[in-house]
Design a protein around this nucleic acid. Structure first.
Lengths: 192, 192
DNA sequence: GTCTATAGGCAGATAGAC
DNA sequence: GTCTATCTGCCTATAGAC
């Protein structure tokens, strides 16, 4: 059923890899073209500029993350369950990605002002989803948190960070890492 | 007593700012020279290449972090105190830095192989310090942790991440953020 | 929709004067 | 130790054929 991927989609996919490897300024379009099976100049049939590739990639990714996380959360009932789902989702998305379509937050600085604002707005919507889980946990389950925004950022950074060191051939599976991280966030280090 | 900063040190300091703003591939040496008060060509009296600037910067930074953290830990007695000290130190270092001499982990990918190995070795030494605090917490205070390496990485990522959003003019001080993060790590979200 | 060829500009690095 | 001038190569983007 999986219809052949369009050239445009293929370029975006390869751009995700390449930008991740070299960073946006360090990546070059001839290399991107080569990986996409075409010549350098042909990129411009599909995109107006290198900047547009970055923008489309980040914008698509943020939309996708919002959509997928929202879907996953439907099955979770309690704030506790939702938090665990979120931790698992965020780690998994950044480690494996949909076609590893992950671009680090760091590339935000490479977006031109208008594009920057649009992507950041979506990122904030994503954060808001998590923040509200934390607030619900506080009111419904008495979680001990003073600053939901603060802890949302902590969660996001530590989970996204897994992608920088995770080794699929290592001892632990993504699930195991996610379990351990969710447990840390819920229970902390000290004995209970 | 503060002797005038050497040109070389000034270039490194400005490079830290510039690389942070634009990333290593996006930064340009004429701009770096301008900020350092000299002309483009003069950089090469102090450094052999752009790569050498990045390497010196990261290598110095890692050494400095190891040294300063070790110093700070002398005053802490229990693993619990040491953990709090570490959280505070790591956040503060990444937010304010010594002359904001912070370069994100992301720049590791821009180091040439030999340089990469040297910097990563130092980074691992730094991580080891934290790992051993966790192990001590487990044996001496019964901390509930299965994977010290995993939790060390979580700590590092969430604390370093503060630098990406912290606003010195905002509601919270670095100390307050550090307190909240240390509390999250120690006690978790759930009621005790 | 992809190709080839190339314009145009930028950035790392070097040379030699002062 | 810093300057100016410049080499050299690379990269984004464009033009026009097929």
């Amino acid at each position: 059923m999986s219809e052949p991927i369009s050239r445009r989609a293929l370029i975006l996919q390869e751009a995700a890899h390449l930008f991740r490897e070299k960073g946006y300024p360090g990546a070059n379009l001839r290399e991107l073209a080569r990986r996409s099976g075409i010549q350098g100049g042909s990129i411009y049939h599909h995109f107006a500029s290198k900047q547009e590739i970055l923008f489309q990639l980040m914008d698509n990714t943020m939309s996708d993350m919002i959509e997928r996380l929202s879907e996953r959360l439907i099955d979770s009932q309690t704030p506790y369950e939702k938090l665990r789902t979120t931790v698992y989702f965020h780690i998994e998305y950044h480690v494996t990605g949909p076609d590893q379509t992950y671009i680090t937050d760091d590339e935000l600085r490479n977006l031109e002002p208008e594009n920057y604002l649009r992507v950041v707005a979506k990122r904030d919507r994503y954060q808001k989803i998590i923040e509200e889980i934390m607030l619900a946990g506080k009111t419904e389950e008495g979680w001990r948190l003073a600053e939901p925004k603060l802890y949302t950022r902590a969660l996001i950074k530590m989970c996204a960070g897994v992608a920088t060191w995770f080794n699929p051939d290592g001892d632990m599976s993504i699930t195991q890492v996610a379990e351990a991280y969710a447990d840390l966030l819920c229970n902390g280090l000290l004995p209970r």
